[in-house]
Write a protein that binds this DNA or RNA. Structure first.
Lengths: 178, 178
DNA sequence: CTATTTCCTAGTAAGTCAATAGTAAAAGTA
DNA sequence: TACTTTTACTATTGACTTACTAGGAAATAG
């Protein structure tokens, strides 16, 4: 008998068709979770190998999909792997050296895009002359957060102070419009 | 023989299949540009009506697509419109009162999503326990920037000081990986 | 050789994005 | 009233993306 693995939260109310400006894809989300499992192992023994299957069940993620993600992470030099019996995956860099931006870029490409183009490439005529600065600032803000947090920070729940300040802002945990 | 109409910038090198975590959609981009045209008119006469066609040609945007965008902005109370000859669109709120976050939410929905869900709704088992805080912080950073900039700020090129600080950061205008 | 485990290619169903087409409804003009 | 202009709305389209799944090749240990 085979059990169908249900992605976590697949049942819950998804958002209405529209995906807002920031979208953390399943790849980025699953990838981060897999890496955090590898960090936990790394802290016991940096060379310890963990099997894809074990990561998948620990994080309740589809195993074949995860395999592809882990391969991308290996091609980016974040993860190392070994095939065959007794094979598996491990971190290939120190957890304090891998940022969330590294992970997102490895799995989803450049952090920010405007209509599919890089923010610095779009040009605006007349009245919208200065719109480009806005998108550049958005990307800079994104970089500031994502390049400032390492896997170790998340694993140990010790986020940088400017990030915890963001979290302490009133309403940070609530959605804006009911 | 029929000529295919090319959207502006469609020719330039688009990004490689992957769209990163932040994506400013055509709707959000065109919508901001249309609104900046309306701001320019508003500063002469707050009740002046501008035709969709005029906005479309000024900003080089497909007119029928723009119509739908302007309708959404009207339904969100940002724009007012009048039908018939001598009709058109105008801002329905003061430019200093409309933030970029308002515009993006009106056109693309909630600012941030994780796998289609709101960041506060996702739950993480075991090693990824604290990942949610990261996504909440990402959303908070996004809000901080987009809710802090008004249409007036962009039109007059007077961005808030914390935003100009972001733009002054070294490398803010360059892409990360060549 | 056999069992295990990663590596890789291909495929697919559902959905989204960026538009376009066509018609109805409102408002002004003659 | 008739006619023109302009927005409002619905439906449709083609290309693409997302989130997977299937199946086999290649490596490694015993």
């Amino acid at each position: 008998m085979s059990r169908v693995v249900q992605p976590v939260n697949a049942v819950n109310e998804r958002m209405t068709g529209n995906n807002g400006a920031v979208h953390i894809s399943a790849k980025a989300d699953y990838g981060m979770r897999a890496l955090l499992e590898l960090v936990a192992a790394y802290r016991i023994d940096p060379l310890q190998l963990i099997k894809g299957e074990a990561i998948a069940t620990a994080q309740q993620v589809p195993v074949k999909f995860l395999e592809g993600i882990l391969r991308q992470l290996r091609q980016s030099g974040i993860v190392a792997s070994q095939r065959g019996a007794e094979g598996g995956y491990r971190l290939d860099r120190d957890p304090s050296d891998v940022t969330i931006a590294d992970v997102v870029r490895a799995l989803d490409g450049p952090l920010a895009a405007v209509r599919g183009n890089r923010p610095e490439d779009v040009e605006y005529p007349g009245a919208s002359e200065h719109l480009r600065e806005v998108w550049i600032a958005v990307r800079a803000a994104m970089r500031h957060v994502l390049e400032g947090i390492s896997l170790e920070d998340v694993a140990l729940n010790k986020l940088p102070s400017d990030v915890t300040e963001l979290l302490a802002e009133p309403g940070a945990w609530q959605r804006r419009k009911p």
